[in-house]
Write a protein that binds this DNA or RNA. Sequence first.
DNA 1: TCATGTGAACGTGTTCACAGCT
DNA 2: AGCTGTGAACACGTTCACATGA
Lengths: 235, 235
Amino acid sequence: MTTPDFPETASGAEGPGREIPPASLARLPIYLRALNAMLADSVERVSSEELAEAAGVKSAMLRKDLSYLGSFGTRGVGYDVQFVSHKISALLGLTQEWRVAIVGAGNLGRALARYSGFTTRGFEVVALFDADQGIVGTQVGWLTVSHVDDLETELKRTGTNMAVLSVPAVVAQELCDRLVAAGVTSILSFAPVVLQVPAHVQVRKVDMGTELQILAYHAQRAQEAEPGSRARSAQ
Amino acid sequence: MTTPDFPETASGAEGPGREIPPASLARLPIYLRALNAMLADSVERVSSEELAEAAGVKSAMLRKDLSYLGSFGTRGVGYDVQFVSHKISALLGLTQEWRVAIVGAGNLGRALARYSGFTTRGFEVVALFDADQGIVGTQVGWLTVSHVDDLETELKRTGTNMAVLSVPAVVAQELCDRLVAAGVTSILSFAPVVLQVPAHVQVRKVDMGTELQILAYHAQRAQEAEPGSRARSAQ
DNA sequence: TCATGTGAACGTGTTCACAGCT
DNA sequence: AGCTGTGAACACGTTCACATGA
């Protein structure tokens, strides 16, 4: 398996290549999933229309998104599934292993540690931390829970380069600071707080509370608009 | 394909509710959290500058966001914390109880069922389903896991009006269809698939795999830009 | 002929800067 | 004065429509 370097960096004399617009970037993993599902079904070619359908987007948007990584479709034919899949994987950096530490081994942290969706996509959970002595030392999947006091040591030992924060909101900023100080520059946070980090650190947030509240807004609106539902008119 | 003869201003803008732009709507829960934290600290007034800081946004954006729900700040002074908090809560429909069913009682589903972040914000988990006979009947928090065969019956009995999907990708669409058929119109999905639903059903997706892949993109980029990619972790 | 790739149009989101109110 | 609320400018994202090239 040869890892092709990027021959098409010719446009820029130096510099890290073109930036992918954030909105497009966020869709690439979805395309990748659809493509890999097709690969599993031995589909070799796909049109923008078909792939867009599978990804739940308009075909023009898909074509524009893919055009940011180069133009490797064949006019009149479509895209080579395997090639595009590989291209997206390479762009996302999935050709290397990412070593992920999970900080916080509560219900959520333990569930994440056992979540197969991580491992199967180039992410390996290599450490799991908690502050609770009743949890430290216990086994979760293949991992033994470490004490958060050993955070810095263990991160170095395991070569962690990404972290998942699944700790209570009150301690999230503090642990985030420690992760950053230890050199972690990519953090996925499940804590319902706004984390302050230096500019070079990437934080992505997953917030189930927020998502439910957004759903509640729409649900309430639908309720009010519905003719069938009686006496629900708050006011 | 679809002819864009959508009648704009279809819904008479007369009602108490204009549409909140999606981007603004997604930030309201964050403001709400910041406001509630302030309330807990007995803060009575806040300026757009301060609240924006707490929410991690620019003050002009915060003011514009709040302006969609009305204008209830005092010029020269700021906003009444309690009042704005209540206003946002009401808009999001958090003044009523939302009854949530969790479909899929694997690692993630069970963690979500025990997650206190739900209960504390107007969302009550009232049902938990799984297809695995080894899990059905077991206790998770205050709930007993029901068999997914009884989905429709239990949804009706519990008065569920929101659902969380935490099932394997392969069965997600099928269960989504059953939820929709049973009248559920708000679904939060953790399954890494694009769900097809009728237009009146709201789906929000949480995808940890996608988030990690986006992080990987940035991390790889930083790696390439940096000459010494060895994480020596110098304090 | 076909489906991609893309300039241009359109729509949405964010920021600026200041008018207007307290 | 001080801070909100908002039009206008700007930036970003999406869609259209067609030129391009297999």
